[in-house]
Design a protein around this nucleic acid. Structure first.
Lengths: 107, 107
DNA sequence: TAAATATGGAACCATTTGGTTGCCTATTGC
DNA sequence: GCAATAGGCAACCAAATGGTTCCATATTTA
């Protein structure tokens, strides 16, 4: 997995909203994903391309339509490998911070 | 929490590495965080500023030094509120994808 | 087959981003 | 007090980003 591609793909709110839409209903066409968005179709195409490059979305051509499917694997990998690393010591880090802030009061 | 600020802060590899460094040893000064990086101090300052705006890093001035502390709360919120939404239905979505891919073989 | 529909490609544009350099301020140690 | 150290500020720059418009291609459908 290209961690950097995934993080950068997730950095944009429009792309996260597209993932939300696919999460709500998987297998939508480009046209369906464009509905109600204040963006041209081409802008959406670009966003979907970035999501596809990051492997967050898979596609399948059906006739003249292109169906889009969310791929949760990279998100799970981010959660497992990267975020859990920080979660694991979350309380510890918080308590470190508290201690150091308390310490600063005495100075 | 400003979800967008957090995602955008995490989008850059240099910033994720800075978080890694703070995760390894909390409370480092700007100078320490610069050591061994192929970047000017000012570039690191900017990155830390972005992490601070996203509330991923807290700072504390001690004399002429500035100590940096990782704040795991926003990362946990991302994990809890956003990522878990996708994890929850991860297998389901995967099986949807499989089914649709299998379906396409017959066409 | 011709029109309508669904998508793709590429050029172009403004803004953001990640980085630099140069200089300034504040603290500390001799 | 003065030099060294730690950090801050601002201007500037190239490249990436998010968006547009215009046009082309492929598939349906009347």
């Amino acid at each position: 997995m290209d961690e950097d591609a995934v993080f950068r793909a997730l950095a944009d709110g429009s792309r996260r909203r597209l993932l939300d839409r696919l999460h709500a209903r998987n297998g939508q066409t480009l046209g369906e994903l464009c509905e109600g968005l204040e963006m041209t179709r081409q802008a959406v195409t670009k966003h979907l391309g970035i999501l596809e490059e990051a492997n967050l979305v898979s596609t399948r051509r059906q006739g003249r339509e292109k169906l889009h499917y969310i791929n949760p694997v990279p998100i799970n990998e981010i959660a497992d490998r990267w975020i859990s690393k920080f979660e694991r010591h979350a309380l510890e880090a918080l308590s470190d911070l508290k201690k150091s802030l308390e310490g600063s009061k005495d100075e």
